[in-house]
Design a protein around this nucleic acid. Sequence first.
DNA 1: ACGACACTTCGTTCACTGACGAAGTGTGGA
DNA 2: TCCACACTTCGTCAGTGAACGAAGTGTCGT
Lengths: 231, 231
Amino acid sequence: MDTGDKAASKIASAIGEPARARILYCLMDNRARTSTELAAVAGVGTSTTSAHLDRLLKARLLKVVAQGRHRYYSVAGPGVARILEGLVAIAGARGPRFVPGTPDRLRLARICYDHIAGSLGVRLHDRLLALEWISKTSTEGRYALSALGREKLKEVGIDVEELEGRRRRMAYGCLDWSERRFHMGGLLGAAILGLALKRKWLAKDLDGRGLSPTALGQKEFHRHFGVVVGA
Amino acid sequence: MDTGDKAASKIASAIGEPARARILYCLMDNRARTSTELAAVAGVGTSTTSAHLDRLLKARLLKVVAQGRHRYYSVAGPGVARILEGLVAIAGARGPRFVPGTPDRLRLARICYDHIAGSLGVRLHDRLLALEWISKTSTEGRYALSALGREKLKEVGIDVEELEGRRRRMAYGCLDWSERRFHMGGLLGAAILGLALKRKWLAKDLDGRGLSPTALGQKEFHRHFGVVVGA
DNA sequence: ACGACACTTCGTTCACTGACGAAGTGTGGA
DNA sequence: TCCACACTTCGTCAGTGAACGAAGTGTCGT
């Protein structure tokens, strides 16, 4: 009677470990996270987490994408979320149920290292390309400042010369895990976030990750970049 | 973030053990089985199986009904089957998928210890009550032979006096797990099965559990009891 | 009353696996 | 080139739980 009970039990046992369950539930919002972040969620060390993640990968519950020195883990597919939902249903938990596609606080704008992620970050990225302030280079995902862009960014208040003296790449498309599209990373992305915080266009949320646009920010983002901040 | 990950991981770990997974998959046909049967399926001893079943009960994946010296285990609800289906789907198993309500070979007629179970057994039980060959007694689930029944059964070829000399109960309703209704157990049930086998109304299947009605059986069951054998 | 039987509980052994820290790999930025 | 950082791999240790047999409980049939 080969009904796949063996393979299924492997998957179930992969879920059935407290640390791994915490990881999976954390990832149920469809956002990808690094192993370090997940280690904090799971409440165990990074090496242990690495082993857990490896097992979840092998069980085809998660997938991973390497980007730079980070490895982003996310759920492998909709079937995984469905199973977890089913388990919670049987468990009779009363906790807040996850509804796919629910917009949330972090979705609009948040910090990705030192630049803006979320729909605002993605719109900025797209807008700068459309305005031709930046242009694609031969290197995949990297952008160069155009003459127009250099001028316009100086007008906005960014010290372009200082940036050009640095070794870090000027601008690149950084994959955004709530939007599944690129937002602006690199020196330019960092400079824009720095400016937005200094001028109080954006305020850091208490958790240090979320970004709330201010009334001033709404106006200024639109004036300088032609970007509408609202969701 | 109390999304029930703890409770769900307990359930998942209950499924995620090979022996328990085999038990669950075996029970996915909605038929109840005893712990001894399940021990054979799981491939471990009865005491170990008892511990597994206890854990599955506590995880609310199974339910149990005690009947005499047997304890019948079955899946607790449709949600359980759905989860198992989901796990198999992710596992990518190709095995024969269970479809609820699928009629199968054992459903029509099979041996339950020494009497007939399945839809044939249930119909005989209902028919004998309707014909008033037997009647309900003060003891729940037990039946007594009526004067009419004694006479008619003798005509059929059953040695009623011999049965009445025994100490075992004459007739009782035995819960049928494919039909979820009562079939006829006790001396009378055993006598009917013995007669049906001796006269080749029914033939034992190779597995020693299933019963196949013969062409003669179709006719005779109808003639003596007014029961139509067909599904 | 007695043995047969189904099942559970108890006590023990043993393999598995989750935990950590240390060391290794690879990328990015000064 | 060099350091900082994110992450993985390796080695070791300790706790969990799955396995069995023996003994106990309760029901059935003679």
